[in-house]
Design a protein around this nucleic acid. Structure first.
Lengths: 135, 135
DNA sequence: CCGCCAATGCAACCTGGTTGCATTGGCGGG
DNA sequence: CCCGCCAATGCAACCAGGTTGCATTGGCGG
């Protein structure tokens, strides 16, 4: 929540969101962020949160992933620019994986220009692997 | 629109949706399906469409992919069970790619159970590659 | 002919996300 | 010191994709 500034304005909301993202062990949804924002002393608007997140993404500090639930999850971008994700089919949490496997030819048709790609692994996270049936 | 029946009830709506999916060159959104449904003689309800799609997915005939726009796109499942997708960053269309590259170790943490995975390539489709700037 | 069930339609509803507009607070210029 | 400007925020209305509850219908077996 400190060094994120490189000529950028650190506002209360931005700092708090960054803190939460730092503390999270998985990618967080807007909803989660807002809930803990509301628990705090000065809760801020959901619109502010959206704008902060949008701003963070624009700054390249955060990226967003959309899970099967069609909800965006946000997480800090570490040093690794490209990485895969793991989505738990049970609890819905999204984690960033570290190692990126070597990808060979993806079979993109002629004329198509490939700019980025994304790999999502689905299954059960460590917590949910033990509980076969869920909510 | 014919052989889709293996003890399953082919209704007008189902057949029409299947026809459209067959005719499509990319994965189609619910919206597109409904629009062309409305142009037809007997337009059907959006709920019916959702239910038909849900049913098709359950039958294993169709699968759905969610793009960056958080909208589901539906496409028929061919013989290939696992395949990658291409999402055009310009027009938003989603295509199914054929070849699935060999994936080595994905770096899933211990305790995590991998069940499926998904690869999405993003860039510009052949149509949009020619038009640098877009809508 | 009757009752049942799957398929459908309709309308209300839910949620994630966006937009327009007014307010506020800091800051540089006059 | 006062003024005007702009970024950040808040509020409320709004939008779209998707879901749910409930009534209707049509076919089919009994």
């Amino acid at each position: 929540m400190l060094l994120a500034e490189r000529g950028l304005t650190p506002t209360a909301a931005r700092v708090r969101v960054l803190q939460q993202l730092l503390a999270a062990d998985s990618a967080v949804t807007h909803q989660q962020l807002q809930q803990s924002a509301e628990r705090g002393a000065n809760p801020f608007d959901k619109v502010t949160l959206y704008r902060v997140l949008e701003w963070l993404v624009d700054q390249g500090l955060v990226h967003s992933v959309t899970g099967q639930d069609r909800v965006r999850h946000f997480s800090l971008i570490g040093s690794h620019h490209a990485h895969a994700h793991f989505e738990c089919l049970n609890c819905g949490r999204l984690f960033c994986l570290q190692g990126l496997p070597a990808l060979s030819d993806l079979g993109v048709p002629t004329g198509f220009v490939q700019e980025q790609f994304e790999i999502t692994v689905r299954g059960r996270c460590a917590d949910c692997a033990l509980v076969p049936l869920a909510t």
